[in-house]
Write a protein that binds this DNA or RNA. Structure first.
Lengths: 182, 182
DNA sequence: GGACACATGTAATCGGTTACATGATTAC
DNA sequence: GTAATCATGTAACCGATTACATGTGTCC
């Protein structure tokens, strides 16, 4: 999923400045499955404007610096819809936690405990964020994906809580075997 | 999670050639949360060998070309354990499907149907792969992460099946609104 | 003799992040 | 006057992928 499509998707929902796009992608509705940096947002926005897919106008705000608000154009919306039509690529998923968990027997109970407890907290926070998003937005498709997220992340958290101790119990087993062999 | 740590993790479980590491990372136990390409495996393996974290030897096989099998060294294992000790970064997750689903009202029922049915099939296949992995390997920590995966992906698939039709029903709503406005 | 799986490697390229640079405005 | 948030933008860099290049051995 490239930055261009992501920005088009965000602007399709509502007008936004580069700064606001960044916020959406790291705190808002999109944060659950997307994240973009300023370093790619601003150049992409310029390119998008040059291609006529979005247009920007300066807006002055009281108590804040001016911002440049972008809107998607008809051409931009067409482009976005065309992108949606091609079958979505499989999810990209990378997890350091799973690597650590899979190597639990190599590390200490402390390391595993910290790792899983950190994950539990992160999961709880993500669920809170998604829950907050649901309340704010009554758009049906958004409700659908937030229900989906809540369902999956709820199951995830439940497993983590139920099986926390059994993972911690595995810590250090490989080390002990090594010592026994010496 | 960088390529170096990933390769160390794989070699910590068993010796492997570059080709086999690629297979592990895209078909084997690690495929669930990792994927690396040849273009980064081979150079990293050379670097790792130069640093004394792994060592390779040529092995001739009957009916197949020779392969260079790598093993992790004590130094490599220490390095890997040290990496595990730092708190794991939050999962990286990017989903084109969620973007499409969130924009369901912009597209046709056909596009949404294809997207969700593709996802259901992929999910079923992933569950099959993880199930297969469980049978092959009785390492406790691996059992733990595969149970975890099965639990979460099972919940995921259940949601997809239960809510497939409601998502499809949302398709085209935005288009109809546009037409009504004209 | 060609298709296919196995096997290794490099160079060009790319998409994106990090760090940097700058500045408005408010609140303390 | 300085810290914090809002706001925009660029340049250097990096990690990884893609495509390319090459070769072995098997099966039909």
């Amino acid at each position: 999923m490239n930055t261009q499509t992501l920005i088009l998707a965000i602007l399709n929902f509502q007008d936004a400045s580069g700064y606001e796009i960044k916020k959406q992608s790291s705190e808002g509705v999109f944060s659950y499955f997307v994240d973009i940096s300023y370093g790619s947002i601003y150049p992409t926005l310029s390119k998008l404007e040059a291609d006529g897919l979005v247009f920007g106008r300066s807006e002055s705000q009281s108590g804040k610096p001016d911002k440049k608000v972008f809107s998607i154009t008809t051409k931009g919306r067409q482009e976005f819809i065309a992108t949606l039509a091609s079958p979505p690529a499989i999810d990209k998923f990378k997890s350091e936690f799973l690597l650590v968990a899979m190597s639990a027997d190599l590390t200490s109970p402390e390391v595993i405990t910290k790792a899983i407890d950190k994950r539990i907290i992160e999961m709880e926070e993500l669920i809170k964020v998604i829950t907050g998003l649901r309340v704010e937005c009554d758009h049906p498709a958004t409700q659908w994906i937030t229900s989906y997220g809540l369902h999956v992340k709820g199951a995830d958290l439940a497993f983590l809580r139920s099986n926390r101790d059994s993972l911690i119990a595995m810590a250090g087993k490989a080390i002990k075997l090594d010592e026994a062999a010496e």
